[in-house]
Amino acid sequence: MRPLSLLALLLGAAVVLLPFFWMVSLSLKPADEIFSARVDLLPSRLAWENYATAFTEVPLARFLMNGVIVCGGILVFQVVFAVPCAYALAQRRFPGRTLLFGLVLAGLLVPFHVTAIPIFLGLAELRLLNTYTALIVPFVASVFGIFLFRQFFAAMPAELFEAARVDGLSETAIVWRIAFPLAWPAATAFAVFSVTAHWNDLFWPLIATSDPALATPPRGIVYFRDAEAGDDVGPLMAASVVVTTPLIAGFLLAQRRVTQGIATGGLKA
C-alpha cells in the first residue's frame, strides 16, 4: 500500500513536470533533433545556441526589462496608494470610513477584465495607449492590497501609533516609518501575488499595446511565436525557459511564505 501510493505520487509529479522537462529539453536540442521522427527525451548535445538565437532573434532582454518596469511600477504605485489608505481605515476615525471600507470590499468583486473596455476607451482618449503608463496605471488601485494591509494594521495595537504621535511623528511619518515596516509580512505576500499576476498577464498587454518594444514577457513570446521565426522551436522554447525562470526561482526561494500565504487567506492578486 505505502510503496504503491508513493509510486503514484511520483508518477503524478512526473506528469506535472513533463511540460517543464520538455520545454527545457527542446530548448537545448539542435533543430534537426527536434524535427526528427524519433522520440528522444534528451538532446544528444546541448545546443546553447538556441538561447543565443532567442536573445538576438527577438528583443528578449527588452521583454524582460519591460516586465521588470511594468511589475515594479505597478507594485510601487499599488503600495503607495494602498498603505496610507489601509492605515486610515484601520487606525483612524473619520466620517465615511465604513462606506470606504464597503467600497473596498465591493471592489474585491470586480475582476480586472470587467473594467478593460472603459479603461481602454479612457486611455485611447488620453492618447496613452502603447505606453508604459497604459500598462501600469490601470492596476494602481489594488483593493486587494488595501484590504490585506488594513487587516494587518487593524491587528496592531493602537498604543503603538499613539506613542508615535506623542513622539512627534506626523501621520504620514507614522505610515511609512512605523506601520509599513511592521507590515513587512503582508507586504511580501502582497508583492509575490502582485508580481506573479502581472508578470504572467497576457490579457491587458494584448489590449493596451501593439508595439513590440513595450511587450511584457508573455506578450513578447507570443510575438516571437507569431513571427516567422516562430517555427524555430528551439529558440522559442529557450525564450519560454528564460521568461519562466525568474518566477520559478523566486517561488523556490520563498516557497514557505508563498504556500503559507495561500493557505491562510486563499489569497489572490
Binding site: P19, F20, W22, T196, N200, P217, S240, I248, F251, V258
Partner: peptide
C-alpha cells in the same frame, strides 16, 4: 508559479 503563456507553448 510558472508563466502560463510560456507553459502553454510547452
Amino acid at each position: 508559479a510558472a508563466t502560463l503563456v510560456a507553459m502553454a507553448l510547452a
